[in-house]
Simulated scan of single mutants.
Amino acid sequence: MDQIAINTSQNVNINFTLAGIGERILAFFIDLIIKGFYVFVLFWVMRNILDYSDFTRGMDGWSLSAFILIITFPIHIYTLVLETIMEGQTFGKKLMKIKVVKIDGYQAGFGDYLMRWIFRLVDIYSNSGIVGIITMVASKNHQRLGDIATGTAVISLKNNVNISHTILEQLKEDYVPTFPQVILLSDNDIRIIKENFQKALKSDDRQIINRLTARIVEILKLEPDSIPFTQRQFIRVVIKDYNFYTGKDS
Rank of each mutant, 00 (worst) to 15 (best):
D2H: 14
A5E: 14
I6C: 09
S9M: 15
S9T: 15
Q10K: 15
N11C: 06
N13R: 13
I14G: 00
N15K: 15
F16V: 01
G20T: 11
G20L: 04
E23F: 07
E23V: 09
L26V: 13
F28S: 08
F29W: 15
I30P: 02
D31G: 07
I34V: 11
F37T: 07
Y38P: 00
Y38K: 03
V39M: 05
L42Q: 03
F43E: 00
F55C: 07
R57E: 15
S63K: 12
S63M: 13
S65T: 12
F67H: 07
F67E: 06
I68N: 14
T72P: 06
P74C: 07
I75Q: 09
L80C: 01
L82Q: 08
T90H: 09
T90S: 13
K93G: 00
K97R: 14
V100L: 04
V101I: 09
G109Y: 01
F110A: 06
L114A: 13
R116C: 00
I124K: 09
S126E: 06
S128H: 10
S128M: 13
G129E: 10
G132W: 03
G132V: 08
I133G: 00
M136Q: 05
S139A: 06
N141Y: 05
N141M: 00
N141K: 12
R144I: 01
G146M: 06
D147Y: 01
I148E: 03
I148A: 04
A153M: 03
I155R: 00
S156M: 10
S156C: 09
S156L: 04
N159G: 14
N159R: 09
V161D: 09
V161W: 11
V161S: 14
I163L: 11
T166W: 00
T166A: 11
T166H: 08
I167A: 05
L168Q: 13
L168G: 10
E173T: 05
E173I: 03
V176I: 15
P177R: 00
F179L: 11
P180K: 01
P180V: 05
Q181Y: 05
V182F: 01
L184T: 04
L184S: 10
L185A: 01
Q198Y: 13
K199S: 13
L201C: 07
D204M: 13
D205R: 06
I209F: 03
N210Q: 10
N210D: 14
I216W: 05
L220D: 03
K221C: 08
E223D: 15
D225W: 10
I227Q: 06
I227G: 05
T230G: 10
Q231L: 11
V237A: 03
I239K: 02
F244R: 03
G247C: 08
D249A: 13
